[in-house]
Design a protein around this nucleic acid. Structure first.
Lengths: 360, 360
DNA sequence: GGCGCAAACGTAAACGTTTTCATGGAAGCT
DNA sequence: AGCTTCCATGAAAACGTTTACGTTTGCGCC
């Protein structure tokens, strides 16, 4: 009982357990880590004492000596919205399945900011998942601790050292354009994303490539957007004023498509009757607008999961998989807005887990 | 130059810097931590050498000696959906503003699972934000390392030791019911959430209290739901079959309200013409369905921010603010679905940041 | 009973920092 | 010049683990 009394002030350490159990710290360590080489009787004692003292090993000390933290760091540009929610979920699930913890770091306003974020990870993580427009090969060489494994997400860099995992934006855009053409549309306008955005670039490339192939006669119409609903609205207004009004509009993301949709509604233009509409991302809202929005689905949680799995593989020193650029395909999901015979009801009500508006 | 060559194998430590700069490790530490008491000349040397060797302090070692990690742990039940996206965002923003890192841990299937998650934080974090249905006062006493500050979110526990930050679900529900009554509805049905969910309980209590006060003559109709869209749909169907059809339906969350909305649409019931509808949470989708959904808004990011700020205050040993149960108010946001004169356009297009469907 | 061997266990070094304390020297004062 | 004061610096302890290595113990075998 006096042991309990003396414990109220500080956390028990391995030494306390050793003393109380009348064994050495080494034995305590062995027992608690299941290394064997210790008598069942002693094991019992040690476990009992550890439980009684409520001993919890200190991870800092453990990390210091082993060089392992069982934590991976995720460097993300911003935690806003569905994309990151899904990404983190995918990462976290996969991490947790491997007993890894997740340290997130977000909102880097510039390359300098990103550098401190990455550097701050030293001694905190075993590997990193990086999604940032600011990092390139030189950046990593400069700021990443020696030999720290890292996987790059959605990045244009090609490195012999770090695997890259990209979304196949180009292919997804091509598939959607092809579908629109097959649905009878030739004059398909495109609402582009931010010029500096890698995804946006790829999507526009896909649009252009597909148009060249499937609708070579059509005049290309590209109006600028910046991924916001507002810019989509403005783009929609602009498109309505075009001489030959486009038959279809393909927006580089769903939010712009939705903005565009409201511009059309306001103008009394029927979608898909007067004009077809498609987006990109398949955000949750897409299926709830009227009409439901056809779009390109990116399996974001999968992206996170695969990235983490790749990283986890690198954590194993035996792993010799060469760094490569992998690509995760997209699926087009056809709803009412593009005018094709939709294969989904207006309100798909298949048992779908709620987006958990509030915790259970 | 030979220094560079010798560095290729291991990361530079403070000793390397000290040796190379011909000073002691103590001085290097002082310089790099800005403690003063060191000549500008020496500072210059040290900084130069540190930069040249690309020295990055090891956080594990630092934490071990200082007892500080500059990291806070967030224990969350699940990372699914908008709620957690927003919550994490709020936490992360506030944390980052204070130079704190964020370690997230999620998806605990049971009390045992939650216990290992919490215990795994020892030596990794300076404090914890906990949102879990499994933790109560006894749990904390058992699993939380001695003297580790923690803030509980959305929890029924009253502890003299740990501050609790709740959403004022009850008050929000009351406000919405009052609004519905003022809009002329008396017979207001309620779709409840999971019985074990704290938020759901509070919302139902609010509904009952407000009905008793503002519509004492009305017969209470409560049908079960579980926060999923699907359960909302079923509830909607059930409500339509009630003898005196309710004039309004108040769902314990938005997803159920939306499911309900589709049930009504399917049955040819006009919302809000034939029946009014309201939800809770103000998820992003709420404003995009037709008609836009009236709902109760919880400022989730604020919840995260405030929780972190409270926790940050506790990190300061001088802080003696007593642990208390705080409550974060909700605002009702009136759109078309409840039949009142909506004060917002169908598609509010005020410059609103895109939910960042894909990263910039 | 002595020998060897393996299993159980303990000792101590190591991990990379921060921080206390001692030391030396320069500067200021009388 | 002699004294004190103060400041820059270095040596070493400490943080709580893991683990390589050495020591003891128990046991079977000749």
């Amino acid at each position: 009982m006096q042991g309990d009394a003396s414990m109220t002030t500080k956390n028990a350490t391995i030494k306390d357990v050793a003393r109380e159990a009348k064994v050495s710290v080494a034995s305590v360590s062995r027992v608690l880590n299941g290394l064997g080489g210790v008598t069942p009787a002693t094991q019992k004692i040690v476990r009992e004492v550890a439980a009684r003292l409520n001993y919890i090993p200190d991870n800092a000390a453990r990390s210091l000596i082993t060089g392992r933290t069982h934590t991976i760091g995720a460097v993300l540009p911003d935690l806003y919205g569905e994309f990151f929610s899904e990404l983190i979920r995918g990462i976290d699930l996969a991490a947790r399945a491997r007993g890894l913890h997740l340290l997130v770091s977000s909102s880097h306003d510039g390359v300098e900011d990103a550098a401190v974020a990455v550097r701050a990870m030293r001694g905190r993580v075993d590997g990193m998942l990086i999604l940032s427009e600011y990092v390139d090969a030189a950046f990593l060489e400069e700021n990443l601790p020696e030999k720290l494994p890292a996987v790059l997400l959605d990045s244009p860099v090609k490195s012999a050292r770090y695997p890259v995992l990209n979304i196949d934006n180009r292919d997804g855009a091509i598939a959607m354009v092809r579908h629109l053409v097959e649905a009878g549309h030739q004059h398909i306008a495109f609402i582009s994303g931010p010029k500096t955005n890698f995804d946006a670039q790829q999507r526009e490339k896909g649009y252009r490539a597909a148009m060249a192939k499937h609708a070579p006669a059509a005049t290309l119409i590209v109006v600028d957007g910046d991924f916001t609903e507002d810019s989509g609205y403005r783009a929609g207004c602009e498109l309505l004023s075009k001489k030959p009004r486009p038959q279809a509009v393909f927006a580089a993301n769903d939010m712009m498509a939705i903005g565009c949709l409201y511009a059309f509604k306001e103008a009394g233009i029927d979608v898909p009757g007067d004009i077809a509409l498609a987006g990109f991302d398949d955000i949750l809202i897409a299926r709830y607008v009227t009409p439901p929005l056809s779009t390109v689905q990116v399996r974001i949680a999968d992206l996170g999961r695969i990235a983490l799995e790749r990283l986890a593989a690198m954590l194993n020193p035996a792993d010799k998989t060469p760094a490569s650029v992998e690509t995760l395909g997209c699926d087009i999901v056809i709803r009412k807005s593009c005018g094709a015979k939709a294969d989904a009801p207006a309100a798909p009500r298949k048992p779908r887990k709620s987006p958990r508006p509030l915790p259970t």
